[in-house]
Design a protein around this nucleic acid. Structure first.
Lengths: 154, 154
DNA sequence: ATAATATTGTTGTAAATGCAACATATTTTT
DNA sequence: AAAAATATGTTGCATTTACAACAATATTAT
């Protein structure tokens, strides 16, 4: 019993990784099925921009946990599709590329959010809201602990 | 408040993804710091093999959520490093490549497990054991629900 | 018995990812 | 004021990854 807990496959870290990978797979398949013209990462970025109007690229990169290079590329795609606009501005007297969601992007995001929410709720319907909420809260504390020890170079 | 919950960034799926990515980053950095000569995936595979002696490649692929191609490559590396042995056997009258952990692999795994456990426990020490356990259990039920709807081609 | 289908593993390839190097501009140090 | 350090974004590259095609063998259907 004591030995059991020594294994990675019995750890919360393993469970997290597995669940997350599976979740990603499910969502990717859902996006294909619903013929959504965005990648999962583009969607996450778009959603994050929508609630953080005027955010700059580096700050966005921190939120979506991508590096600056990939964040830039994701934004190129979103801009090219007309879902966001980018503009040069300053932050702490430095030139930065800020962005905002377009009218079209907002409509697209809203559509996707509704579709996805409906579907995903049907997946988690066997799990009580309290459990979900409790997990979410614990994950958040957990994440904050992780942020203290991880070195993020973005 | 109701609208809030519509956003991906407020969903448990987002929290899962973020926490998992962060966790991966932390562990990768830990492996580098401890100068462990295994990738994270190799470690997960080795650990899984150790508790599933005689497993075949495809079954292992299912457990570590990699496709058959990548699983094969990971095993090539582990075999080359002398941590596992592979042998041809049959499963349901079919030829399969089974594997087992070597004496050396077992020692290596044990060393890593101890190091990693010690470190990771220091990370999660601010979170109570009950919370961890509860999250782990809920994640597992969640994962089982996901497995029902996801299409896995391995 | 022959053809079609299924299982398992490998190889090839295109896309995603992260990291380092670079370019530019600004702040801090000397 | 000049030099060093910092912040931000982009480009290039090497690694990882997933997916499809293939090879070999066994099972099932006709």
């Amino acid at each position: 019993m004591k030995d059991c807990k020594l294994h990675y496959t019995d750890s919360i870290h393993y469970e997290l990784e597995q669940t997350s990978r599976l979740m990603k797979k499910v969502t990717t398949q859902l996006f294909e099925k619903l013929e959504i013209d965005l990648s999962l990462d583009e969607y996450a970025a778009l959603d994050t921009v929508s609630v953080n109007a005027g955010i700059c690229q580096r700050d966005l990169a921190k939120l979506i946990l991508k590096d600056r290079a990939n964040t830039g590329r994701i934004l190129d795609s979103l801009e090219q599709k007309g879902f966001i606009t980018r503009f040069i501005d300053t932050k702490n007297n430095r030139l930065v590329k800020k962005m905002g969601i377009t009218e079209r992007g907002l409509r697209e995001l809203d559509t996707i959010n509704k579709k996805v929410k409906q579907y995903l709720e049907s997946v988690t319907k066997t799990i009580s809201d309290e459990d979900i909420e409790r997990v979410q809260e614990t994950l958040k504390s957990f994440r904050l602990e992780l942020e203290k020890v991880v070195q993020i170079n973005i």
